[in-house]
Write a protein that binds this DNA or RNA. Structure first.
Lengths: 213, 213, 213, 213
DNA sequence: GATGAATGAGGGTTCATTCAT
DNA sequence: TATGAATGAACCCTCATTCAT
């Protein structure tokens, strides 16, 4: 990757893209911790850079604005969610896939603390149209993946043909978002909620217990 | 304007309590508009008081701190939600009650703009324990009411006895919260989502279409 | 001035325009001292407000921007210059008027320190078009007054009819500006310079020593 | 690009002095453009180095401080002015010399933009004593040269013996500085001003039109 | 009670400058 | 030498809050 294709005299310190990328991640990680703890607006740049182990001025060479930092963070978070869907899509049966997703979402999402971030992102999107657009786009991808999964299960006879994959996927997304909120709030017991959710969705999809077995 | 309805209240109480209550509402209303628009932390006291048509200093005589204002606002919002549940509890059939709630939540909640506030509240609760406790308490009441409604429908033979009212109520609350988020984000079509939600919940509860009819 | 024309209930602390105007002047005075000492861009808002005996935040209630402060200061300075011209215009003979102006400009202009401000203003005008326009406008008024004065002296036979009042007034303004610069620099002796300037201008205008006497 | 013209200089001198001098000029040229555009204090080192096509760190190897850069720039500018005087001193008649100087100063000074720099320098000198001293020194040389020229013309009978060369030279310098300011401000027409200036000075010096011819 | 005026404590951002390669 | 990366110290401005009328 650092092959010298052109043997031109470098004349000065060569740029190191890998180090830059690494530091970028480092800053984003620190920012995430701060944002989870304080929210986007209450977290200060000084706090973030300190948490990331970087000087404030240096942080500004990677993210020219606090807003840029927020947006980059949101993008990274959405990308993570997309990864999650990909995992789920590879499950053998719907029940198995559902369970996996719900478990990953509600339980193992890095000690639950990140759940608050999803709320923060949604709240921010509710007033910042630019961010709303970005969140919508990522959500659309996830929802489409879920819808496609449902359709596939219909072809496999696993899911009732009566239901419409699109709105149902939308609904499942809603359920997940809502569960995240309640778990973050500590208003619900994650495991019980997860179990009930699996049952509700399977019933709603018209999945025969045998097929799910 | 400052009509003295009760020129002389006994007990040495300083001034007209009705006027005070009215002004309090006036400030809360202005604050709500600002919070919806900007969020709790980005909305400034100057902005809020201006929106409410009150001087900043005056506002501080009603809410000694911006935080107090936020908390009062949240309380008012939660109280509204509790009112909603009371309405629902009076419905005849489960299907009817559900439809009504969903409609009220997703469609008529004052031109949707207030939906963002619910997100803001949840996000704030995710980091402020004091607010989390308040939200949890209100949520507990609502969830209990929903659970009770389910139990009543089980007795009436309308709902399958296989399901557990508590977790299911929790789940329904999750679904509602999530729907609010997605509608606020404009990621979903409210009507389609509401229809799918009704169907999902009824199916999940084991309500036979005939009974719901 | 604070007559109560409308006996409406004031409802709150009444605004006091005189106090405001006074504080405005106070800030401008402090700003002037700082600008003279450091220049527009090197003077900080903290410095200025401290010099003016005002808090930074309070200063910002009078001048919403440092730029606004600079512009107001320039306007005040230009207004002072216009006052100067008015005085001169009332002199009996040209020689007397000239001497007076030169004296006022080079010697008594508040311990010379303000001279640097004129340079600062011109330098700023050289790059800020908005300020350039304001300075030009004030200069145009002054120059026109000088030209008019010359024309009057021509009619009185005091000044040769060979010269053109407009460009000559321009020239005299140039001379004054230049003298200010050199005196501020301490490159010239003010009195000697003033004497030579008077002589040069009178000679240049074709004023016969007898007439000037 | 970094051609080694002299691969081995004796005396252990580190590197090509010509290249250094050239780069120095390159930086000064970039700095001048920035200073003209923004002023000494508003121009940033990043801007300057970028305009000069050099990295910031590299610039610091030529000018260890922004202040050094400013001073070097001022020195270069003053040196240019001294060159100008030398040209003028070689003129045959006073009128011719004057005209030439005025023309060079007001018209051909590199598209007028540099005029602002003179103001910037004077303004800076008005507060920075070190720079004031440097400017004064250069001005003294120029003024002396002008005074000497006047004295020579007096011996030649071209100029009235009534005038005192020293203060008069000072005055002429003032006039020039002032004209520069007004032209930079676009408050005066350069040609008209130049013509009037020539006429005024000649008249002030008691030069008979015939003698000037 | 209600308003205008005032302020200390940051907040985001920039900048001259240095370090590392 | 020359460039990329990093940083401490401000700087302008704002905000929640208090004081004075």
């Amino acid at each position: 990757m650092t092959r010298n294709v052109l043997p031109e005299t470098p004349l000065g310190r060569p740029a190191n893209p890998e180090a830059r990328a690494h530091r970028r991640e480092q800053i984003l990680a620190g920012a995430q911790r701060c944002f989870v703890r304080k929210g986007f607006h209450a977290a200060t740049t000084a706090e973030i850079s300190s948490e990331a182990g970087v000087s404030v001025a240096n942080m500004y060479q990677y993210f020219p604005t606090k807003d840029d930092l927020i947006r980059a963070m949101i993008q990274a978070d959405l990308a993570e969610d997309l990864d999650l869907v990909r995992l789920v899509n590879e499950a053998d049966t719907l029940a198995e896939g559902l369970e996996k997703t719900i478990r990953l979402t509600t339980a193992e999402h890095e000690n639950l603390s990140n759940l608050g971030l999803r709320l923060e992102i949604l709240a921010e999107a509710a007033r910042n149209p630019r961010i709303a657009a970005e969140v919508r786009e990522a959500d659309a991808q996830i929802t489409a993946a879920v819808a496609e999964m449902i359709a596939r299960r219909q072809l496999a006879g696993e899911v009732s043909n009566d239901i419409d994959p699109g709105p149902t996927a939308d609904l499942i997304m809603s359920l997940f978002d809502g569960m995240i909120g309640r778990i973050a709030l500590a208003a619900s017991n994650p495991e019980a909620l997860a179990r009930a959710a699996t049952q509700l969705i399977l019933a709603g999809l018209g999945v025969t217990p045998k097929a799910a077995d």
